[in-house]
């Protein structure tokens, strides 16, 4: 499994402490850019699919979800990275869960206070950020062995790599499924059959299985362009 290899490699490769590395050195920028393509959490590492698919019916919840994950992931990575030398190995999973769960409670309460509608729509999936494998996966694989700043960049990078897939999938599902984007009508009303036009929405795009098939097709496109990712 490709993702397991990646995880193990990163734990071993502890960065050699160098005096004065610039904040955005080449290596650090790679942490930000890698997750978008070569090391995307969803299409390559296969992490975080659980909550990713169910909330991609519309664009707005997908964006809110992406932002929440960016917040939880970046702060979680920094906190765990600060604690990494004090936490005994045996109880690290529980410590990680507690840190992530507290951050998610924060996000949940903020969403409830400011965007109640979206929070209702996301329902249990905000809580499920706790068990989003991508967060635990990056904490285990990266934050436990790296300094806070690098962990922060890794968190932002991976969370956006995850968010971007969410947004792409939601874009296509909302556009073809209900002819809208962010709740605004995109397909002209006069096109619809009801108004004497030729078009009708593909309600199938709104159903859960289409999320899987859309991601499958995305993976197909990505791997056709980036041949080194092909599995044998």
């Amino acid at each position: 499994m490709a993702d397991v290899d990646v995880l193990e490699k990163e734990v071993v490769e502890k960065p050699v402490p160098k005096p004065k590395e610039p904040l955005f050195s080449k290596k650090n920028r790679k942490l930000l850019s890698d997750p978008f393509d070569d090391n995307n959490p969803i299409t390559v590492q296969v992490l975080g699919i659980c909550s990713a698919l169910a909330i991609t019916v519309k664009l707005q919840p997908a964006i809110v979800m992406a932002l929440s994950v960016v917040f939880v992931m970046a702060s979680g990575n920094v906190i765990i990275s600060l604690l990494r030398n004090f936490v005994p190995n045996r109880i690290r999973i529980i410590v990680q869960l507690v840190v992530v769960a507290s951050l998610v409670v924060l996000v949940d309460q903020v969403l409830k206070a400011f965007v109640y509608d979206v929070s209702k729509e996301l329902a249990v999936f905000v809580g499920l950020i706790i068990t989003n494998c991508i967060i635990m996966g990056r904490l285990e694989a990266f934050a436990l062995g790296n300094k806070p700043w690098r962990s922060f960049l890794d968190g932002i990078g991976n969370a956006w790599g995850y968010g971007i897939i969410l947004i792409i999938v939601a874009f296509f599902r909302e556009l073809f499924g209900s002819g809208q984007l962010m709740g605004y009508q995109i397909v002209p009303e006069s096109w619809y059959l009801a108004n004497g036009g030729f078009y009708s929405d593909n309600g199938f795009m709104l159903l859960p299985p289409m999320a899987l098939i859309t991601v499958g097709v995305l993976i197909w496109i990505q791997r056709a362009r980036n041949t080194k990712l092909i599995e044998d």
């Binding site: 296969v46 299985p209 098939i213 499958g216 197909w220 599995e231």
Partner: peptide, 23 residues
Amino acid sequence: VPAPLKGLGITFIVTGLMGIGFM
């Protein structure tokens, strides 16, 4: 299976089809 679709890609699509069945 077409090479870029091997492994993960085809699994996603098959899962989608199974989901349609379960619907």
